[in-house]
Design a protein around this nucleic acid. Structure first.
Lengths: 245, 245, 245, 245
DNA sequence: AATGAATGAGCATTCATTCAT
DNA sequence: CATGAATGAATGCTCATTCAT
């Protein structure tokens, strides 16, 4: 099932000079793709941006899609490596979660809305052929968080009644939604604040609620509800609720 | 005398037959767009799928983009209407949240991965010109949840220290990430289970965690007392655990 | 060789009401064609301008080209009729020439650059099939001038050593070139002045120069030339030349 | 960041091979355009006529209109250059006029009715965007005649009571009307005869008609006298006819 | 190693024209 | 008589991709 990669003979014999070229092209391509999006970018434009002919680009990458995927791959590889190196240095599940969330936000926002779009949206469109590669990249990228979570689950630090993928969806979904908001509205949120708030909420979701507290909270909700139904302003309750964090 | 915008063929005063046609085209277009994505779909294919000429399609919609936007708009309008009608019938914030999450999951998964892709990914790509319309649709669509949350915040039922947009990002982000997982892996998760789990986690994030749990206990005692005075037997024993952050 | 006119059965049985319709359409079409030019005009626009469907237009005219040709024909017929009626009322060859030139200028400039363009340029483009009709219209249109000239030639009032068509080319060519200038630059020249000037020049060309005067003029030219070659400023000659009308 | 105008493929740094191609395309395009007219010609046909793909043509010219304009421009440039070089070599205003008229006739008739149509009719239609360029070409093309006339006017050799543009309209208008006749009737007139006749008529229009012919006679007498004093025998008998308006 | 040149395959969009009702 | 609806047939233009040099 592996995409039958048209083995580019040329790629084999790449010397040092060539490696540099590849990186150069990837850099420019990242720039162009993230500015215009995949469909609107043209190989010509990429080539021209580095004073090279289209043909040259095609001698290093088999296709436009290939090039785009490499761009995305580079991005994922970079941040994945960093995560793999840095996360283990953090102590404490919550702190690790916070670190990952913050990093995700920060990295994607760093280059403006461009990479956001590319990784979050365009990357998704670019064809089935690369679906597997995408999945692999994504898997590696989310592995650190997954590891954090599975360890924490095993130790009972976080709730065990939720499937791991769902926890991942919670974290990345919410975080990326924030990023997408940024893309659409172009309002750059404060990274630190947002990361803290997100982590806070995630943590609330993750932490195992002791049965009693849970019951208590539920009770609180129900009473408040009942009061509301009686048209009695539940001022008192509201005040109780208003002092968290 | 300014360049007279050549209005598309007819479009006004649609007869009954025409209305049917419009709907027919929208249906087929939804199908095609959701299967292939916007860029890879061609108007020709849409036309052929309904044994009609390309020109016919263009006599009902001014452009390919117009058509696609209408498709997306119809989808949003439908589900938005339903939400606006149904959510108020639900009693209780948590139940409303659950309803919305479940509905979101169910609706988008209902037609296979197609509409997921279209709404979640393509919908995001299709051009600046429609950005505003997209935003409007989205705004209306998320309005019910927003209202639920803002009401609940005002009453103190959910925490007030989180900005509304972030709460929305939490809910829609996580939910849509689950959906996207479905798109990528093609593993359809169980809707009810997932909705329940997500809601559970969201609720944990949303519920106000009183910093001073003693206050909560005190509240319990007082309410129990009050109830006793009303001859209503109160249940629930408040043993307080101290692990909330 | 006559263009096999697709006999429009409909046209035969046209009642009075229909005649009115035909005229109505022709009016609107003239408007549209002259504003936008043939290629850029659409039947749809013409139809809409009179709140009728495209199909209706086509039930009165076999094709867009037909319609355009009718528009041009109407224009030619109108002005031809007028010329045929009015020219004979004028007395004197020169006055008749002046009248025709002035009328040509005035009529074509009357409706702005639109009809100029249509009659002078678009009319020429619209297809070989109608070439003959065009030629006929043109022939009838130029007939009055031709008659004036042939009469004057026979009587010896104007020179007989020039072929009639060339005289016609002289008059219409120059006049229409003036009109075209107007189309291009959009500077409307004064009709009376221009007509007078053109007629003046035409008349000089037409009038038979008595051999002696001709020789004299030629002599004048040669002497002036010779003087110039000697670098002697021919002030005297210039002064002599400067007092004509 | 303004919408970056996607420059057409190459176009800069044309190699030797390319230059040849450009000329080749221009030649074929001239052929096609002049045979069919702008609107009816298709780039495809031009491409096929030279066994090249449509895309190739578009890689040398940004658009169909661009191509057509280049064709027209080349024609104008060629003849303009020739005129600029040749006219100054001619001695005598009348001879220069004759030369220009003859050249205009000859050049346009040389390639059959094709270039006539293109330059005389299509050239006028092809869009506002190129209006200015057209005007420039035309200006340069008519400049030699204009110069001849303005010099002759200043020296008093031709009448000064007519605006230069009108003189130009007279000459080019009549000449082009002759050409258009050729286009319509396909009867090729004899170039030399026609040029001579036209020039003759033009000259009659241009020559200053002294209001007081006596002055002219007097001038003749004086010059004759002067000549006699130089022992140069003067010919020409001044018998003055009185029919100049 | 680099590229100039060429192109195949598309693709959205327009409109005159037809015809059943 | 009028027309709503449908469409066939073009057409200009774009770009990823190939390949000889």
């Amino acid at each position: 099932m592996l995409a039958p990669i048209k083995s580019p003979r040329k790629r084999e014999a790449l010397g040092v000079r060539s490696e540099r070229r590849v990186k150069e092209i990837l850099m420019v391509a990242r720039q162009v793709f993230s500015e215009q999006g995949y469909e609107k970018s043209t190989v010509l434009e990429i080539a021209r941006s580095m004073d090279v002919s289209e043909a040259t680009v095609f001698s290093y990458f088999t296709s436009k899609r290939d090039l785009c995927m490499q761009v995305i791959k580079v991005w994922y590889d970079e941040i994945s490596s960093e995560l793999e190196r840095e996360v283990p240095l953090i102590i404490g599940t919550r702190a690790q979660l916070h670190f990952i969330v913050r990093k995700h936000l920060a990295t994607l926002m760093h280059e403006g809305t461009g990479m956001c779009k590319l990784v979050l949206s365009e990357g998704r469109t670019v064809d089935e052929e690369f679906a597997e590669m995408q999945a692999d990249l994504r898997r590696r990228y989310t592995a650190p968080l997954k590891k954090v979570f599975s360890t924490a689950q095993r130790s009972g630090e976080i709730r065990q009644d939720m499937p791991l993928p769902l926890l991942r969806d919670l974290v990345y979904g919410a975080t990326e939604h924030v990023l997408w908001d940024y893309v659409v509205t172009n309002n750059k949120p404060d990274i630190d604040t947002t990361a803290a708030q997100l982590t806070d909420m995630f943590w609330s979701s993750l932490v195992p609620l002791p049965a009693d507290l849970k019951k208590l909270a539920q009770f609180h909700v129900e009473v408040a509800d009942a009061l509301r139904r009686l048209d009695v302003p539940a001022e008192g309750n509201a005040r109780i609720a208003a002092n968290a964090r």
